[in-house]
Write a protein that binds this DNA or RNA. Structure first.
Lengths: 174, 174, 174, 174
DNA sequence: TCGTAAACGAGACGGTACGTCGCGTCTTTAT
DNA sequence: ATAAAGACGCGACGTACCGTCTCGTTTACGA
């Protein structure tokens, strides 16, 4: 199930994987679950680079994110399950657990590293939680919207502008 | 066909609208086009309030946006067509024309009003275009992600936090 | 659905009939119902010939019956639904109504004609019912067993022997 | 695997027999063969009673036959394999050898006993063969049709009527 | 008593057919 | 002429069962 999510039919997936359709249904409860797992695996490739500054780190991970989203199987699968999840709470929970919450590690790591560097002030736990959620929604949402809805490349120039705007917001003395 | 998008089947839509399926196909080329138009109409309800400050204006419009996204027919329809558009360029263009670009008016208006108030410096046209796109991707993407993926309410508290972060980024002296 | 019941899959049936599988399911509740109707239609071809004597009439209709049973689509279909009906009361009722009871007309006609000719004595209604059922079970059961289980042809010689035995039983003065 | 043929799936059969599906396939070539053997075993229970007259003997064995056919596993299995055998010559041969020909012993025994008693005249071998086949087809076919298709009980009353008709045919002076 | 080989239990898998759902087309009927 | 009603072709879905296969475990028997 690694290549070619463009054809989103389970039969084709099975064929391409050299496996019987039945086998897929033995391992996953349905198409949605399968796709969530496959997409989750894709995003697990994300690594927070250590480039010396928070801005560079963010830019690096956002570029990776955009690169994954550029693959047809990733965007196809991701949007398909998100669209389904609108009317299926269990599915949305699964997405949250397998994809969203799982990748929040990147925000946490980046934040911790920036605090160690002194780029960000320490924060109390509660405020951290809120901010991490907000950052994640902003980064993920913005990049997805840029690449999938606006359909413009999240290239280095754009990423730099986005990161600057984001960081100015984050580091501003309130 | 304005209410009850929870059941997203064309037959039901037609029935509920007291109309024959045939009629829908006379007016729209297919399900996707129909949904795009319906969703576009929903977003046309958005109005940029004049609350005196840019922050308040943004908060106002974001809350309206979130309110629309809270309706099942809106999120259902929106995500369905966006998911389809991943593999259908014509559809994505239609979404851009009917929904995205159409609502960028809000960013432009807000920006102009803020400049008139002196809250934002004037900007040359090219930089404006880039910034408007960025702002739009950020606002729309973030709010969608918050409400549909993270599935948490974009309530006043959250909107205030989001707006503050956004504005600090926008108004910071680079 | 008129030709080639050897391949008993609904998909092939549909294809061969130049029709979509769905359409079959729109008209029949399932494979069994469809087959019952098809087989019933086959048996509706049966005609009681008027050959002058009861023996000849019986021989004629039994030969027709055997001829129908010789067609692959007939035996295939018939035995398939009968086998299913063992565990499906509704199906058995349908078979009874559409096939068995429907063809009892042949026995009734033959009997009436023989009585008109004086070959058989008149009988009271209740005894008639019992005898008709018995005759039908004997004729249908025996011919089916001969052709499908014993797998030997119900040719003229055999039919003559069978008919003689049957008629001797029927006409014997008790 | 002797009891409970109502659920005709091999998996369930295996489970119920406390045996692995694999084991069944080690002993039989497939489902059909297994069922043929099981059904054959059931019919081996048949015994020709010695009641003093041919009529009583026939009635006795027919009642036994009907009793076996009343068991769900018997009718289910029997009809299933017979239905299959329509398109599988090897299977039909197996049924003939294991079930049909094997039980013709009952007809032969009954006939011999009746001849010893003087109830039936001796017959030359060739005529015997033909008649035995005919009798068997008539008895087996009729009882099966009565119980499985007409779905009415082959009780004592019915059996008496059937036997009388049969015997009158058999004993009539040609 | 122990080691080895045959038989078995458990269950995953490839495959085929089933019956269902929804889209988009097309035909019929009535206004 | 237009629209409601609804049958139809199509393609995918998810399910059930068959028969094959590969394991790991038990059992039987001879050294």
């Amino acid at each position: 199930m690694e290549l070619g999510w463009s054809k989103l039919t389970l039969g084709d997936v099975a064929t391409r994987a050299g496996v019987a359709k039945t086998t897929l249904y033995r391992r996953w409860a349905g198409k949605n679950e399968l796709v969530v797992d496959a997409v989750a695996e894709l995003f697990d490739e994300l690594r927070l680079p250590d480039c010396g500054t928070l801005a560079a780190d963010i830019e690096g991970v956002v570029l990776q994110f955009a690169a994954i989203l550029a693959r047809p199987e990733a965007k196809s699968g991701l949007m398909a399950v998100v669209a389904e999840s609108v009317r299926d709470d269990a599915l949305r929970e699964r997405i949250r657990a397998s994809i969203v919450d799982r990748q929040k590690r990147l925000v946490l790591e980046g934040r911790a590293r920036a605090q160690a560097r002194g780029e960000l002030p320490p924060a109390d736990p509660e405020e951290t939680a809120r901010t991490v959620d907000l950052i994640f929604d902003m980064v993920a949402g913005t990049v997805v919207h840029r690449t999938l809805v606006s359909a413009r490349p999240a290239d280095e120039v754009w990423v730099r502008g986005f990161t600057r705007l984001l960081l100015q917001g984050l580091t501003a003395t309130t």
